[in-house]
Computed example of a mutant assay.
Amino acid sequence: MADENMSDTQQEALEKEKSLFEAPPMGEQERMVEAILFATAEPVSLRELESRMPHGSDPAEALQHLRKRYEGRGVRVVKVGDNWAIRTAPDLGFLMQKETVETRKLSRAAIETLAIVAYHQPVTRAEIEEIRGVSVSRGTIDQLIEMEWIRFGRRRMTPGRPVTFVVTQGFLDHFALESARDLPGLKDLRAAGLLDNRPLPSSLPGAPEPDEDDDMDLLEGQSELFED
């Protein structure tokens, strides 16, 4: 009865007020997520998407719809760690290469240290040295931290509470990995031509298990694997 006595202007104001508390249609939410991912250089978390979108939106569902819609396209929606981003399809990466640019390569010590952190994280400096069999210079650790490929993790609850190291989201993003669990195994690295024919160290607990005929050295990959 009260609604019948309301003017058209009042009705419009009431409908507008109600719409503020209603989530937009899923198609519109997809467009919003798409716009945010395109405009943001760094991967975006679900929490950040939710904070930017209207009240009641479901960015997780919108991402799944958007991810499916981009399948087979020139770009795709990918998960990087716990965040999301739009990236070039892997098979089209060659179009983005600049032949005139020469990248700086990491030293063998840095490659080995980075590989150990990636495959054994969280790992302490002492554990890195135990696996490598030699001491790790502070400069090597500092270089990898400066490149934002490794970062400090939680301290171990052991005497001295040593700090641990883990790979960063930037590392995962650079190599198009969702998580460190997606790191390639020995067969994949060998097939890609990224490993030399050297014996695999026997003291690498946690590293991918080699086959009986696999005598590749995980840590002595071609330096192109870890270009800066």
Rank of each mutant, 00 (worst) to 15 (best):
G139R: 09
I86T: 01
T103W: 13
K79S: 13
G133Q: 10
V163C: 09
L225I: 09
E48S: 13
R125F: 05
D213V: 08
S137M: 05
S19N: 07
D213G: 10
S203D: 13
M53P: 02
M32I: 03
R73T: 01
R47Q: 14
F226N: 00
R47H: 12
D196Y: 14
L63S: 02
H174N: 10
E17Q: 10
K79D: 01
L63Y: 04
G56N: 03
G206E: 02
G160L: 09
E48I: 03
A118Q: 02
G170C: 04
R156F: 10
V123H: 03
K16N: 12
I116Y: 07
I141E: 02
E12K: 13
D91V: 08
E102I: 15
E12T: 11
A39M: 11
A191M: 12
A207C: 14
R154I: 06
Q10L: 14
A115D: 03
R76W: 01
G193F: 08
D142F: 07
V136S: 10
A191Y: 05
R151Y: 06
L194P: 01
L194Y: 03
S203N: 15
E220Y: 15
A207G: 06
T103L: 14
D182S: 12
R67C: 03
E102H: 15
L218T: 01
P208H: 05
L144W: 09
L46H: 08
M216T: 12
R104K: 13
V80Q: 03
L195C: 02
P201S: 07
V167Y: 00
P208G: 02
E127C: 08
E112V: 09
S7Q: 09
P210D: 04
P24A: 11
M26K: 06
D182H: 13
H55K: 13
Q11R: 15
T88P: 00
I36C: 03
I131P: 00
E112H: 12
L189S: 04
R76H: 08
